[in-house]
Design a protein around this nucleic acid. Structure first.
Lengths: 132, 132
DNA sequence: GCTTGACCCTATAGCGGCTAGAACCTTCAT
DNA sequence: ATGAAGGTTCTAGCCGCTATAGGGTCAAGC
């Protein structure tokens, strides 16, 4: 336990790119425990778990800012769960709103696609529809 | 007819910001017919219509690159409609794929939201789920 | 003709979340 | 001692705008 791994090993272990890990560091999400004399970043299981947490949260579509908040809350056992809830809830609302937009878009594109049987742009209903 | 309007008037007429119009110009989508001696851009109805076309296409979620292609096709009466179709079709596919992802996401977020009734982060199922 | 104020100009930097590249340094096995 | 593999920092690019700074132009009213 407490084994130290380099950024490349951490990257492989979590299926992340090393550049992305460095980027998360610059964004204040994940720091190496220490460095070698030559400046190589070193990580432990703790950071690996943290990175997995980050990836799962990102997979939910959360912004890095939200992920940062979640990490802060996760670090404090006494933090009110309500704040976690509200981050998730707001994301759910964003996703639902985006879904509505996309469904509307799908209908429009589908209608457009259906309506054109022409050969040339001169008779193209799609172009016509965009030009009105 | 053939009245010349400034960028601000075009912006108001099409509900676009002047900076955005300039940006479209820099992207090769829309140029003023001419300029005043002092360098002010001047537009006619033709550019207004073109900008409306751009806005409609953007509203369909098309990239500026795609919009540019559509404009090129629209300018050529003899261009094959097939190319227009395929731009629309590919966009529809992208939208459908994104819809699938988002629906999956909605389910995950919904599940997460349901499962947490705790007071503090120590018992929070959401955090637990992210940490596993 | 002159001033005022609304409008316009260019150039540059920033957003988010990475990704790519250059130019260099470290580590480790042989 | 050497060479390959992997690490370092820094800078710039992607998309589609948006914001800011620091200036110039235009039309109207006096």
């Amino acid at each position: 336990m407490d084994a130290r791994i380099t950024i490349g090993q951490l990257a492989k272990a979590t299926d992340t790119k090393a550049v992305t890990i460095r980027y998360y560091e610059s964004a204040g999400l994940l720091s190496p425990v220490t460095r070698t004399q030559g400046g190589y970043r070193l990580y432990t299981d703790r950071e690996r778990d943290r990175l997995i947490f980050i990836k799962r949260a990102r997979h939910l579509g959360l912004s890095l800012e939200d992920v940062k908040s979640l990490l802060g809350l996760a670090d404090d056992e006494n933090a009110p769960c309500r704040q976690v809830d509200s981050i998730i809830h707001e994301q759910l609302e964003r996703v639902r709103s985006r879904l509505k937009d996309l469904q509307q878009l799908e209908r429009e594109l589908d209608r457009l696609e259906q309506c054109c049987q022409a050969d040339t742009v001169a008779d193209c209903k799609i172009i016509e529809s965009l030009s009105r």
